[in-house]
Amino acid sequence: MSRIKLGLIGAGKIVRDQHLPAIQQTPVLQLAATADPYASIEGVPGFQDIEAMLNAHPDIEAVSICTPTTLRFETARAALLSGHHVLLEKPPGATLSEVEALIELANQQRVTLFAAWHSRFAPGVALAKAWLANRRIDRVQIEWKEDVRVWHPGQAWIWQPGGMGVFDPGINALSIATAILPAPFFLRHARLRIPENVQAPIAAELSFVDTQGAAVSADFDFRQTGAQTWDIHVESEGHSLSLTQGGCRLMIDEEVLLDEQEQEYRGLYNHFAELIKTGRSEVDIAPLRHVADAFLYGYRETTEAFIE
Rank of each mutant, 00 (worst) to 15 (best):
E262C: 06
V28P: 01
I194G: 07
T302W: 00
F222T: 00
A115I: 02
V86H: 06
A11N: 08
Y269T: 05
H239F: 02
W230Q: 15
A22Y: 10
S82V: 01
I103S: 03
W117G: 03
E282Q: 15
L243T: 05
S175Q: 08
V209H: 13
L132N: 07
D147V: 00
F186D: 09
T225D: 07
L8K: 03
P184K: 08
P91W: 08
I176V: 15
Q18L: 05
I276M: 15
H189F: 03
A79E: 05
R3C: 04
G213F: 15
M164D: 10
F185E: 10
K277Q: 13
P92V: 04
L71P: 02
P37K: 08
A32R: 12
R300T: 01
A130L: 08
G247D: 08
G154W: 09
P21T: 12
T302Q: 12
Q199F: 05
G247S: 06
D259P: 01
R280E: 13
A62L: 11
A286D: 13
S207W: 13
E196G: 06
G162E: 14
E74M: 07
I60W: 12
A33Y: 10
E274I: 01
S64A: 14
P45E: 15
E89S: 10
D138R: 02
D36M: 11
A116T: 06
K145G: 00
S281L: 12
L96Y: 03
P287H: 11
I307G: 00
P91N: 08
A183N: 14
L206M: 09
G154N: 11
P21Q: 05
S97G: 00
V150W: 02
A179M: 12
S119Y: 13
G93K: 10
Y299E: 14
A179L: 00
A101D: 14
F121V: 07
A215I: 13
A190Q: 11
W151H: 10
G46A: 15
V148R: 01
A56Y: 09
A218R: 00
R266I: 14
I14L: 15
G154H: 09
R193N: 05
Y269R: 08
I137S: 12
A106G: 05
L113W: 07
Q24K: 14
P169Y: 12
L187D: 09
A62D: 11
D284G: 02
E262M: 11
N134E: 15
I171R: 03
N134P: 00
P184T: 11
D147P: 00
A218Y: 04
A11S: 14
G226K: 00
T303G: 01
G170L: 08
Q48I: 03
H239G: 01
A156M: 04
